[in-house]
Every structure is written in C-alpha cells, then in structure tokens.
Amino acid sequence: MNQGEIGVQRAIKLKELKDQVIVITGASSGIGLVTARMAAKRGARLVLAARNEAALKELTEELREAGHEAVYVRADVGIEEDVNMIAETALKSFGRFDTWVNNAGVSIYGKAMDVSYQDMKRLFATNYWGVVYGSRVTVHHFRERRIPGALINIGSVFGDKGTLVQSTYASSKFAIHGWTESLRMEMDREKAPVSITLIHPGRVDTPYNEHARSYLVHQPVHKGMIYPPEAVAEAILYAASHPKRDIYVGSQAKMLQLLGANFPSLTDKFWEGISPRTQYDEKRKSNSPEESNLYHAGYGMHERGTNLGWKRKRSMFVKAAKHPVLTRVIVAGICVWAVLKIK
C-alpha cells in the first residue's frame, strides 16, 4: 500500500456493500453484468445502465425475483444528458448513490492508419467522455451532500502500455488513466469526500471481442492467459467499500506496465512480435461492422465471450490487493527463506 492510499483511507470511510446504492454502467453484459449479480448477492441496491433495454429489463427482473432491489436506465454514456438521467434515477429511486462504476466501453480492432476518424470519435464518446460525464456527476453528488463515496473507473492493461491492432481503444484507456489520476489529485488537494479507484484489468473473458468494430479479416479474440470477469467484479466491489488507488487484475497487467515503464524499447519489440497473433482467430471470419456495438447496443446477458487460451479461475493480484499486510508478510517470509537456503 502506498502513501496515497494510506492518506485516502484515513480521510474516507466507505459504507459496507450491504448498505450501498451502486450505479453500474455497461451492466447488460460482461464485467458489468457479473458485477451487478455479485453486488446484489452481497446486499447492495443497484442502478443499472446500458443501451440494451431488453437485457437491462431481463436482468432487473432476475434480481428482483431473487429478492434484490434494482432499477434500470436505458442510457448511452457518450451523451451527457443520458448520464445525468442515470444519476436522477438513482436519486428518485433511492435518494442517493454511494458508488458509481464507470464500466461501459467499446473497442475497435484495426491498424492505426486504417480506422476512420468517425469510428475513433464514436469510441472516445463512450470510453472517454462517458467516464468524464460519470466522474463529474459523481463528484458533484458527494460534494453537495458532504457524504463519502466511491468512484471506480475501469481502465485497461492497454491504458498502461500501447498495443498493436487496438490503437484507438488503447488511446482511450490512456486518456481514462490520465483523467482519473488528475481528478484524484484535485479531489485529494481539496479533501473532497470521494475515493477514486482505477482498475487495471488484463485480458478478460467477456463478449468484448464479439461486440468490437473490426477492420480485420479474422474474428477478434483474446488468446493466451485470460481472466474471468468475476476477478474484475471482485476488485470493483472491494474498491467500493475500501479506498484504493489502483487495483491490477492479473499478473499480465502489472508485468506489462512494469516492463513498459522500465524497458520501453525492449517491451515494444517483444509486444510487436507476439501481440498481433494473440488478438484474432484465423479459423473464423470477422463479424460485419453492423454486428458491432460501436453505434448501437450489442446483444446482452452474456458474461463470457468466445475467447481462446488459458482461462484462469481468479486473479492472485486482486487477492493480494485485498490483503496487503498478509501479502507483505508472505513475501518477506519467502525472501528470508531464500536467503537462508543460499547460506
């Protein structure tokens, strides 16, 4: 735990999940869907937002039938008025919200020089401006009521290190990382009652690849080591009740960040060699542009996608983030053991 996290923890005490109202954008599939189901089981009341109204309605009915409280809002987070409507629905339904999760996102698979400006701008409307709108609504809410709460922004391994094939997506995530860090410093300086967390997921097994706008011949996929959406949801819900600066989901996310920061040229060469072929399936033809969710809602109620590779059951980095003291004791023990073995 770094000094920034210690300072935040001293200043802000967040509610337990069972006492919270949580707003989740992009709740109709993937990480958002898993987070909603997990949060409901832990007693949180939910405000669910996405563009797919049919999926939202189905999810809300599912949760209510299980005895949980939830409402939904059909909203495009790339439109400021829609984001304001999400907040208004939370206030009307529950009188407040305690955590806002900026999860909604879209992607584009295509070379930097091939993707149209129109598609780039549309992606940024969702990925970047959606986060900005949600962040500002959240900060205003906590400031005005002088109550502590959590803002959780979903970044990416590609927000720490650029990549081939998904340059537009990576650029939007870099922007989210910069926005989140800058906003956090401003809020810390004025001692605002808001905990701001950036989640750094590695590759996650969601329908992300099938929803993406593709310029490729072959179908986009994740290959290699892939983490379950439950690992990201676990990180999100921990940050909702425990102030944290950053949580990395998966060793690949942390390692790529460290390598890129300390050995940039070497990491570039390494990534140039392995990255492209891990992002598409040669056996399948790519979906048509009309099937993507860039300009309209994609299909909903699917937690996972059609990715290939080693699908992990959990992320040990998330477990370590939840138990920092225990993790340090274990690491120290291993180091002492190693020294004694050498002697």
Rank of each mutant, 00 (worst) to 15 (best):
M225C: 06
H323G: 00
R245F: 04
P243A: 12
S315R: 05
P220N: 06
L266Y: 08
V331H: 08
E290A: 12
A240W: 08
F270Q: 11
K313P: 00
V336Q: 01
K311N: 05
G273S: 14
V232Y: 03
L326Q: 10
H296C: 06
E234D: 15
G333L: 01
S241W: 03
H218S: 14
H302Y: 13
I274L: 02
Y227A: 08
A261N: 08
I330W: 04
V221W: 02
L216I: 10
V331Y: 03
T327I: 04
N293A: 14
F270M: 15
G298T: 09
Y299S: 15
R245Y: 05
V221M: 01
D246S: 09
T267S: 09
D246M: 11
I274E: 01
K223R: 12
R304S: 08
G300C: 10
G309Q: 04
S251F: 09
A338N: 08
N287Y: 11
K285C: 04
R304W: 06
R245A: 11
K319T: 15
Y248I: 07
V339E: 03
G224D: 04
Q252H: 09
R314C: 04
Q257K: 14
A320E: 05
S275D: 13
T306M: 11
P324H: 08
M225N: 06
A338Y: 11
H222D: 07
V217D: 07
S265P: 00
G333W: 05
K319F: 13
H296D: 14
Y299G: 10
V318S: 03
F263W: 04
L259N: 10
P243H: 05
H302E: 15
N262L: 12
G333R: 06
A240V: 10
T278I: 09
D246N: 11
K223A: 13
L294N: 02
I226Y: 04
Q219P: 00
E272L: 14
G224N: 07
D281H: 05
L308F: 10
H242E: 13
A253E: 02
A297T: 03
L237Y: 11
Y295E: 07
R314I: 12
H302A: 15
L326W: 07
L259W: 12
